[in-house]
Design a binder for these strands. Structure first.
Lengths: 247, 247
DNA sequence: TTTTGCAAGGGTAAAATATACACTAATTTC
DNA sequence: GAAATTAGTGTATATTTTACCCTTGCAAAA
């Protein structure tokens, strides 16, 4: 037994706040606990991290076992380690959130998925453990990230209308946006591709469909979040500001 | 032995990136390792988390043992858990950064402090373990936070000049700022108190001294980052934007 | 076939903010 | 008192954000 081995060790887990967007609501996938502690309460999906697995790997595994989805957007948010957060012993948990296209979500083996259910974020009440606090941290992080990077697209199906996109942003930011300004802003970012198709089967004027252009986004990032220089007309954009508005 | 006890457990630690500002440079406090692994290499200060201690507590303890400082700004950044990040076994570490007023830093018991040294961030090379990666994450986080909240003041002595403050922002953001625009912006935020004193003993026109007004900042936050409504003239400020510039 | 309901789609003017830019003022030192 | 050095300041322009409503296209109902 070396000195190293003598240090206190703890169980550690990941918890994954899985966000989806459906029916105009931001939703989160919760699991009803079938065992103590907190039996019968809703909880975030999570599990122990295996010895041969890194943290992102564990979070991805949790996600995949539950939803069958791989390669979705995943972001580490914060680690929770209050001494008494788990009644059975010391457990440190690393909180992640993921963004999934809710239509891609297929119920996995009934045994697992039976107890899983999407909940509108605005209607989630108390959760098991400190999961409510974890959810709140992830929501806050999502809110701030969505203003910095075009994450919204991760939550929408491959084809969507501008109104869909606006509703998504409104749901995440918990605010109302002006339709004309929203469209102007989004289209000016030149991240959308007009699919030259329209909605079908709606009882009103059908909307145009767009898709997100991931390649353009990559360029967008590489240029330090500047707009592209189009036709040499637009000068360097304010995106690279001397000082950000809030300093 | 319960099922709970049978799960894999790991050692876990905190590492603390302690930032200071001195001589126009952003600095970080590093420790020269006196033991294997990575003996003789520079490393971030860190230690195991005790069983009765939460994560913030551990980070604060590490900071206090090294610098004697309490109640400094501390922010959890990210958790690192690559399977092989520690050659002796599985160790998960939670990375924090702290902002200290470098003049307050007093060498603690020589036994500890002997090996500690401030390094300009721009001159830090390879570090032990994955500490270089941790440092980079913390730097990046600091850069983005400093644009959202007035953190800079945590790094300056209680009284400072506008030029000091500008140099600090330039060091953190790794950019040059326009003097007039910087002053306009900072003063318009109404977070500084003019101390009606000037520098002494400088071989040029002495600068006015200011201090940060923490109370005003609290109000500033509470109002959702709006400017105060002064004399009813200024309307709601753009700080609450419909959509942030980068979306 | 006409009417009605409904969401889509689009532009402009005003306000706020950010940027670029250069000289005078105050102090110490020589 | 001249030189050196940093502090301190204002304005004009460019860009961005905001507020604000009517016409269009489709389907369903009349």
């Amino acid at each position: 037994m070396t000195e190293f081995d003598s240090f206190f060790k703890s169980a550690f887990t990941v918890d994954n706040v899985i966000f989806g967007f459906d029916e105009g609501d931001l939703k989160v996938l919760l699991i009803k606990r079938g065992e103590a502690p907190y039996m019968g309460k809703w909880a975030l999906p999570g599990y122990f991290v295996y010895p041969n697995e890194d943290l992102d790997g564990a979070a991805n595994r949790v996600l995949e076992e539950l939803t069958g989805l791989r390669k979705v957007y995943l972001e580490q948010v914060k680690t929770f380690g209050a001494v008494d957060r788990h009644p059975f012993g010391r457990v440190i948990t690393v909180a992640y959130f993921s963004l999934v296209k809710i239509n891609d979500y297929k119920l996995q083996p009934a045994s697992i998925a039976q107890k899983a259910q999407w909940h509108p974020v605005s209607k989630v009440g108390e959760l098991a453990f400190d999961h409510r606090e974890i959810l709140d941290s992830c929501l806050e992080r999502l809110k701030s990230l969505v203003r910095l990077r075009p994450l919204g697209f991760e939550l929408l199906p491959p084809h969507f209308t501008l109104t869909d996109l606006q509703h998504l942003y409104e749901a995440i930011l918990e605010t109302e946006l002006d339709k004309r300004n929203f469209r102007k802003k989004i289209l000016s970012m030149d991240l959308l591709v007009d699919l030259r198709q329209t909605q079908e089967g709606v009882a009103h004027r059908p909307a145009k469909l767009y898709r997100f252009d991931r390649d353009k986004y990559v360029r967008f990032q590489a240029e330090g979040f500047n707009f592209e220089l189009k036709e040499g007309k637009r000068k360097e954009s304010r995106r690279n500001r001397e000082l950000a508005p809030a300093l």
